Amino acid sequence: MSKVTMYFKVTCPYCARAEKLLKERGVTDIEKIGIDTNREARAEMIERSGGRTTVPQIFINGTHVGGCDDIHALDAEGKLVPMLTA
């Protein structure tokens, strides 16, 4: 299984929705990085994601795949599971 990293906020419903989808697709270990109170993590997320400031921001094997809508779109296209199993 691929390494999945997700920047998130505790109160974010989109983060919970993205995590639920990832778990449904077999991801058992998500490196979750909270940005609620961690300015350094927020700055890192913005830099790594090409300037995106919303959460979640998800990376699979170090590749930025976007946020909640983006991974749901990948899943609908049948591209998420192959990325996760690569």
Rank of each mutant, 00 (worst) to 15 (best):
T5A: 02
T5L: 06
M6S: 12
M6D: 03
F8M: 09
F8W: 09
K9M: 08
K9C: 01
V10G: 01
T11H: 13
T11F: 08
C12S: 13
P13H: 12
Y14L: 03
Y14V: 11
Y14Q: 05
C15P: 07
A16E: 03
R17I: 10
R17M: 15
A18T: 12
E19S: 10
E19D: 12
E19I: 03
K20T: 11
K23R: 05
E24Y: 06
R25G: 04
G26M: 05
G26I: 06
G26V: 08
V27I: 13
D29N: 08
E31L: 08
I33K: 01
I33M: 06
I35W: 07
D36K: 00
D36R: 02
T37L: 13
N38P: 11
N38Q: 07
R39N: 14
R39E: 15
A41K: 06
R42L: 15
R42K: 15
E44S: 15
E44D: 15
M45G: 02
M45L: 14
M45C: 07
I46C: 11
I46A: 06
R48W: 14
G51A: 13
G51S: 12
G51V: 10
R52F: 06
R52W: 10
R52L: 10
T53H: 05
T53W: 06
V55G: 03
P56I: 10
P56H: 09
P56K: 02
P56T: 12
P56E: 12
Q57A: 08
I58S: 00
I58K: 02
F59A: 08
F59C: 05
I60F: 01
G62Q: 11
G62N: 15
G62E: 14
T63D: 02
T63R: 07
H64P: 12
H64A: 14
H64R: 11
V65L: 00
V65T: 11
V65A: 01
C68G: 07
D69P: 07
D70P: 04
I71L: 06
I71T: 04
H72V: 10
A73E: 02
L74N: 01
L74T: 04
L74A: 07
L74I: 00
D75W: 00
D75L: 04
A76S: 06
A76W: 07
G78W: 06
G78Q: 09
K79S: 08
L80A: 06
L80K: 07
